[in-house]
């Protein structure tokens, strides 16, 4: 029953909150949808912390796609041995994790100590940073310490298939029963973080301007029917 809650009910509830929340905010709270930069107040610490965190988390995201979305069999079929995979995952993931955690700590200190930044930081801002530190911290610990001192855990046989099963609506919660506790904490806290996304500044993840390079530099807009002939 506990397993059903944590690995079926909880992920679906959090993902539902995330998706409905995002849709609601996109439709009705468009004015609040922005990447709330505080660069205008402080640049020195931001210059180190923000790129460190953001690039780190982009690498980490790619790593999670490689570990969670791409099946174990695929790696074997293209000749990537488990040993080789784990070396890559520990090195790449470890580096990304350290970047993320270091960046977040710099940003947290900045948020707490630079007056104008602190004054305008909301509960949601601190919650987001602390939550990210927790999730990224457990992830980095798993990658760098657990994997090297206890066992290079083969999550591609348990967590990966379980994660994919969520999206086919056939949650294989049984796969999660034997997963080490630190991994379970990492996964559950990440889902809790997902649920908070619509209510925090994290919404800006979904507005990364990918279309910008392909767009015409100058933008014209006109009133409706302005060009209608014969008027």
């Amino acid at each position: 029953m506990v397993h059903i809650f944590w690995w079926v009910i909880f992920p679906y509830i959090t993902l539902t909150i995330m998706i409905l929340g995002l849709l609601y905010r996109y439709a009705f709270r468009q004015l609040s949808w922005a990447a709330p930069s505080t660069e205008i107040f402080e640049k020195k610490w931001l210059k180190i912390g923000s790129p460190l965190f953001h690039w780190g988390i982009i690498i980490a995201f790619i790593g999670h796609v490689m570990g969670m979305v791409i099946p174990h069999d695929f790696y074997l079929s293209i000749g990537v041995s488990d040993h080789l995979y784990h070396i890559g995952a520990i090195a790449g993931g470890g580096l990304a994790g350290l970047m993320v955690v270091a960046g977040l700590i710099i940003l947290l200190i900045r948020k707490a100590t630079i007056d104008p930044v602190r004054v305008h930081a909301t509960f949601a801002d601190f919650f987001t940073v602390l939550m990210l530190i927790f999730v990224a911290g457990t992830g980095t610990y798993m990658t760098l310490i657990y994997n090297t001192t206890v066992v290079a855990y083969e999550y591609r046989e348990t967590i990966g298939p379980w994660f994919r099963s969520l999206f086919t609506l056939t949650p294989a919660y049984g796969l999660m029963t034997g997963v080490p506790l630190i991994f379970k904490i990492h996964v559950a806290s990440a889902f809790a973080l997902f649920a908070s996304i619509p209510f925090t500044k994290l919404v800006h993840i979904f507005s990364f301007p990918v279309r910008y390079p392909a767009r015409a530099p100058q933008q014209y807009r006109h009133r409706s029917n302005y060009r209608r002939q014969g008027l």
Binding site: S207, P209, Q218, Q219, H222, R223, Y226
Partner: peptide
């Protein structure tokens, strides 16, 4: 006529009114 702010906006939020 050739606004660089418009061209600088990644989101395409800045625009020049046609009329």
């Amino acid at each position: 006529l050739n606004p660089s702010c418009v061209a600088s906006c990644p989101a395409g939020a800045l625009y020049k009114r046609d009329e």
